[in-house]
Design a protein around this nucleic acid. Sequence first.
DNA 1: CAGAGGCATAACGCCAGCTTATGACCTCAG
DNA 2: CTGAGGTCATAAGCTGGCGTTATGCCTCTG
Lengths: 297, 297
Amino acid sequence: MPLPPLVADLTGFDLLLSVARLGSVGRAATEHRVSQPAASAKLRELERRLGLTLLHRTPRGSTLTGTGALVADWARTAVDAADALATGVAALRVTHESRLAVAASQTVAEYLLPPWLVALRAAHPGLTVTLQAANSADVAAAVLAGRVELGFVEGPDQPAGLHAETVATDRLAVVVAPGHPWARRRSVAAAELAATPLVSREAGSGTRRAYEEALGLAQAAPLLELSSTTAIKHAVAAGSGAAVLSSLAVTAELAAGTLVAVPTGVALQRRLRAVWKAGDQLTGPARDLYAIARRHR
Amino acid sequence: MPLPPLVADLTGFDLLLSVARLGSVGRAATEHRVSQPAASAKLRELERRLGLTLLHRTPRGSTLTGTGALVADWARTAVDAADALATGVAALRVTHESRLAVAASQTVAEYLLPPWLVALRAAHPGLTVTLQAANSADVAAAVLAGRVELGFVEGPDQPAGLHAETVATDRLAVVVAPGHPWARRRSVAAAELAATPLVSREAGSGTRRAYEEALGLAQAAPLLELSSTTAIKHAVAAGSGAAVLSSLAVTAELAAGTLVAVPTGVALQRRLRAVWKAGDQLTGPARDLYAIARRHR
DNA sequence: CAGAGGCATAACGCCAGCTTATGACCTCAG
DNA sequence: CTGAGGTCATAAGCTGGCGTTATGCCTCTG
């Protein structure tokens, strides 16, 4: 199901947010580097397509109507998400004149880092960040080798030669499709969970290791081994079985009802930690990013 | 600061998500009702602009690369937010062949309802929802008069003639600008809070009423009275003083560091309740929406 | 009463992006 | 080994959306 064309292009909504902030269509146009008539037409077209009146236009400027304010607040969420996407992509891009290099494990890179980077960028407008997404072992290696200043790792291991500080705790959730027998269970005991083959990532993934450790398993026998979280979610939603995933990864699906979380008797959680070279003191943007990560905890 | 042009248009990212799900550029093109070359060109252009390789193209289809999967996950967040925006707008639009009419107070309409409606639409693909955003008293009146089947209200009042069930609890947060004297305080006592004029909504707003009740005030003297949550946030961020706002309304600002939450000795919270006519039984989409709201709690 | 600031309308030109048609490539079946 | 079917890339041509400048009208201010 493709995105409705109404919202595929966010520039109109972005313009609306500028009008809300600046109080005039003309000033919003200036901020967006377009002519005033272009902005005026764009906003009018937006109103026409939504079938809503968003602005009170007066000779002294423009203000939002009630519905305009409501739409603007929803739009802000979408624009912020797009902004986080842009920031993440910019960091992923290998820029050779980078200023801060960061490495992060999959879960952190996917779900936590983008808003942190948006906040960091607010504090350091000109800063370029490069991000390397890798598994926890590679992150540790990159920090040790000095390729990145700061790393974020998951899982139980204590990396040698690194100073580690917990910045967040990630709960792991057992998820199944709504039609799965477990979907209506009050609870699934640790023993039953340990005895059930799951849809999971490849051996050595941070999520899988944390799960194996929590259940005291040396190596869990997988029902199906897939290489990405997304693939696992789809397989489970299609009824392939149960999976253990970061709760951060399944909020949207739980909200939509595509997946159902099953309560368990086990505390499935793991710490997400910031790591840097032991003995070193974090400075500049790296220090700020660490502070932001702690603050968001 | 306008949105980077890279992400202003989400169609490319949306297409990427379809490719991830369907495994082929051509099928994604079909789903989006465009020709295969158009989709191919669009994805290639996306890769060019991001400076990243997102797809493995093979004669048997296309799959995401590692960075492609990462970008796709971030993109999914943005696309979902845009989808919530579209759903909210569609519900706001007065459609005359509506099927489910809902009224909600400001906080619920702004922050909670869009994802609920997205989930509801997943269960009822053809359903048209109309939404009326109003204050709690008007919501109750609309339900009583039968203009809407289901309402969502906030605040302490028990609406006469209506059956009410709590669907969520909203914490109120005391927020100030980072430079405000309170920003570094460990705690602000109830008495001090009650004695301090705040930036607030007009008398009678749900948030303001809940705050007055929690502090045992008949009527709080405002420092500044503004008509929208957004205006209040900006005024506070600019250093105008302190405000009490729904924690739902300030998550983004707290994350970005624009605003700072001040711990207080008072339990500032209020219930958000679903209401329908006493004696009636919820049926059909209204019943499902209520269930979704409870599930998201 | 004049000027400034704000939004709308008009006229025009350009380029982005879509479509159809076709080609190149791989895989698999017989 | 060979042909069919599926996938993606390239080419060429056209349309129309969108932005620009120029201008007019309105309202509030001094």
